[in-house]
Design a protein around this nucleic acid. Structure first.
Lengths: 185, 185, 185, 185
DNA sequence: GATGAATGAGGGTTCATTCAT
DNA sequence: CATGAATGAACCCTCATTCAT
């Protein structure tokens, strides 16, 4: 009678485990980047490795689950009536590591359907903001959604590689650059 | 008793091996990024692991050797009389993967003396171009060397994550963004 | 994609593996000393390297597990009512290689908490025997626990370096020396 | 024309190289024990690896050469008219690391002819001292050369495993033990 | 005969993934 | 359906030994 240290709480633990895994993954990805050991995620979630694999058959599945939430937040932000691209950049810079891992994911798994879905939600929300900001003259006529997507990607990668200490400064600076790029002189 | 399968071609192979390693490393880094297995580099160079470690005691040493060349090219470019920041961005986009790994290196090994040296050469050449372009009115007054360095970093990271197929298009687009950012409306 | 050649016998193999590892380690350490390759231990135990590292994160942990047993035997010996230092030396000589590796461990990892614990158990039991033997006049007044610990260490190292064939003879001889040293003329 | 950094000084360098290798090996063995990398010896001697192997085809040959000197010193000590076993122990404790490596060698390469030669010189000198000390009543009648050889071995191994900081204290203590063992009450 | 680079086997360690319970 | 141990491939790095020059 092996007398496991942790009781097998049975099927009912399913949803709770799923949530714990996502939470743990968000933290671990934020701390150690997108290639952190999955075992670390399971451990932090207090869940067996096997359960992790049951819920999320691969790293991408886990990433997608994690970032669904991030995207949702950004979508909410974009939906708010007065919000602008500047707010979006702020939101991304704030979520720094998480957003970065998100962008990394959509970019690393470019040909994965699930990641593409994430990316397309992103595009959609950016699109809305671009249209709005263009209409209100907040950005130049010629700025496209693609431009902004690229800018977001660049910002995210940059922050990913920046020491936590310098992150605030670098983010501020980078936003300045994009402000110059996108707004009228 | 190693009883080697491959003949020891003797010390005269040294310089050739060194060159082969740098070439292999440039390729491998370009294909798989800066944390590609060093064993892959040795294998591609057709050289024993030990020789790799003899020539380059660590990953940074190898990276520095690889990128010395890249920097030199960019320095040459910057030194040419009529060259501008735009040319620099072009140069970086052209060397795409290599330059990217170079930037990755200077950013990842920020506190390594050798990497710092590379970074400072980069800063120096950017600085010269900024001054020149500012003088000739090609860029806005308020654009700093730091801004341009960040932009270069962002461009590099972006290209690193971009499929080879899309690279040209993305690079063109990104340069457009920075042109908007840095030049007078 | 590991595609294992050997079946995963599942968690139930855990305790058996652990025991097999300790047994294998005891043998390997005895044959080849405390710095024998850990891979040899895993191989002899018929266990993957990963499992070894799971059970024993480092060499010291493995050593401690192995020698816990040895110490326990010596403690039992020391606890027996009529036992003397001479019995302890006999016990050590009998366990020869194991005891030797044990002493090597406590001496090599002097600043590791786990090894210190082993060492302190040893000291405790020696202390008890010294007090008892001093009381009964079996050893000179001036003999200290430290002296005996040193003697044990020396005996152990000596046996470690002695061919198995000569071990019995050498052990007998060495015990003679320490008898002369510790008992009244 | 490879233009070596160090000139090939030709055959005349032979004896000088040999001496430099022995000196370097003595230092290296003393600092890092008998299994220090041979490359370290060659480097410290300022000599190519190949030359090391030419002069000393294996580690034992090098060890023998190194310790020939140590033995010679001890022989000189033993030959001095008033010297006793106590002096020998002092000599060994003083040369601590070197002597230890010497004993390690004679014991590790027990079946190597060259090492046996070293060992037998050691036995011879100990024998002389034992006879002398027995005659003068300095040691008990029953103490044999073998006993002393064992004691020397034990002392050496012990010192080898002792932190440099504790070496003096431990050596003093151990000599005390052997004094008790070998001298009358 | 000296030189020192080349070689690759081997040991340590990590981690993705499977699977018995 | 959860658990968590088991597995081994793969990487890093070191060093004994050889051998072209």
């Amino acid at each position: 009678m092996p007398e496991n240290s942790k009781a097998n709480r049975g099927p009912s633990a399913g949803p709770a485990n799923r949530a714990a895994l996502i939470k743990a993954a968000r933290e671990v990805f934020a701390e150690s980047g997108l290639d952190a050991p999955l075992s670390a995620v399971a451990r932090r979630a207090g869940v067996g490795q096997g359960s992790l694999y049951r819920h999320f058959p691969d790293r991408i599945a886990l990433g997608v689950a994690v970032f669904d939430d991030n995207i949702a937040q950004l979508e909410a932000l974009a939906a708010a009536s007065g919000s602008t691209l500047v707010d979006l950049f702020d939101g991304i810079a704030e979520q720094a590591m998480s957003s970065t891992a998100l962008i990394e994911l959509t970019s690393a798994a470019r040909h994965d359907e699930r990641a593409e879905h994430l990316a397309s939600r992103m595009t959609t929300l950016v699109d809305a903001l671009v249209i709005r900001d263009r209409a209100s003259g907040r950005i130049r006529e010629q700025v496209t959604t693609e431009d902004v997507m690229l800018a977001i990607g660049m910002l995210a990668f940059l922050l990913a590689k920046t020491d936590a200490d310098d992150r605030a400064h670098v983010a501020e600076r980078a936003r300045g650059i994009f402000r110059m790029a996108f707004t009228e002189g």
